[in-house]
């Protein structure tokens, strides 16, 4: 393996923790995650409920709920998100890093036209005249596949179909040429054929933009991304190049996810689910969080948390070898 000089990370997360205080004490949704995203990478953050993936995404833009306490190192394009003031964060959001949410209907302003929202964003981050911003908005809408963009600009979000709304959200995210786009379950609410189109769109984005795709669906991650990070109960359990992770998963949770995912087999095999359910934030057991559901867990797993995942090691006392199926 030749040594490659890596470009400096455009998003650098070090031991990020996101905690809430609840009536049962402190609940940590994210328990020490370290990720580095390089320019142009397409990364998937995969996890189920309670994995903390959404909170992690929100923390990168500094938009976690006000009751959340975020700690650790969050550096986005050189800016320390936790130390930045409000003005710096406003410049960052929408300009350097932008987000595509799952539900376009609640993420877009319902009382303003789609065009006005695009224009506002463009003018806020660049010194553009209204006409220039309009032009840019039409340009970007067309590039995401919205035909008759000039007319569409005058529509309100609720007047558009789901797929169209999602394209508008992506346009909103792209309009200022951000370095990083965080997409949180962007296609979950869409029909299969529309989902495929939106995924194509995400895949076709310029190679200069870094994409972080947050999803619970490994298959979606496999379709779009080159690298996959798997999260469970607030921690990273395994990560690596997509094909490698899917063909030779080493962490029992990853293996379990793959075995539970429906796929078109020649044999119509029975799905192999993971028994139990993921723990809620604040309810994580002592030791490895996955131990209660893991077929390979032993006493050590139930008492001691495995070391964090690295590029060569997974967060497990008993990593498994061999093909996934």
């Amino acid at each position: 393996m030749s040594t490659v000089t890596l470009a400096p990370a455009v998003v650098d997360l070090r031991d990020v923790r996101v905690a809430f205080s609840t009536d049962r004490g402190i609940a940590e949704a994210v328990r020490g995650v370290t990720i580095a995203l390089r320019p142009g990478e397409r990364v998937a953050l995969v996890g189920e409920s309670g994995s903390g993936k959404t909170m992690l995404g929100l923390s990168m833009l500094g938009i976690t709920p006000p009751t959340a306490r975020v700690s650790g190192g969050i550096s986005v394009a050189g800016t320390d998100v936790l130390a930045a003031d409000r003005a710096a964060m406003r410049r960052l959001r929408g300009g350097t890093i932008s987000m595509v949410f799952q539900d376009a209907l609640s993420a877009l302003n319902p009382v303003r036209t789609v065009g006005s929202q695009l224009v506002e964003s463009a003018r806020r981050h660049h010194n553009l005249s209204r006409a220039q911003a309009r032009h840019r908005a039409i340009e970007i809408l067309t590039s995401v596949g919205v035909a008759a963009a000039a007319e569409r600009m005058r529509a309100y979000p609720h007047e558009l179909s789901g797929g169209l709304r999602q394209r508008v959200m992506i346009a909103l995210a792209l309009i200022n040429d951000p370095q990083i786009i965080v997409a949180d379950e962007p296609t979950t609410a869409l029909d299969a054929t529309i989902q495929a189109q939106v995924l194509d769109l995400l895949r076709a984005m310029s190679t200069q933009t870094t994409l972080l795709l947050i999803t619970h669906d490994l298959a979606v991650a496999a379709e779009v991304c080159d690298t996959v990070y798997v999260m469970y109960a607030g921690r990273l359990v395994e990560f690596g190049p997509t094909r490698q992770l899917l063909d030779r998963p080493r962490h029992p949770y990853t293996r379990g996810l793959i075995a539970a995912a429906p796929r078109f087999d020649a044999r119509r095999s029975v799905l192999r689910p993971i028994p139990g359910a993921p723990p809620r934030a604040g309810d994580t057991p002592i030791g490895c969080a996955f131990a209660p559901r893991c077929p390979f867990a032993d006493a050590q797993c139930r008492q001691v948390d495995p070391p964090p995942a690295t590029i060569t090691e997974v967060a497990c006392w008993h990593p498994q070898e061999g093909a996934s199926r």
């Binding site: 409920s49 959404t54 976690t64 709920p65």
Partner: peptide, 18 residues
């Protein structure tokens, strides 16, 4: 276990930062 919202938050708060 305690109920889980379809999203991700482990606490009774909205999922998206609205």
């Amino acid at each position: 276990q305690r109920s889980e919202a379809p999203g991700d938050a482990g606490v009774p708060l909205a999922d998206a930062p609205t």
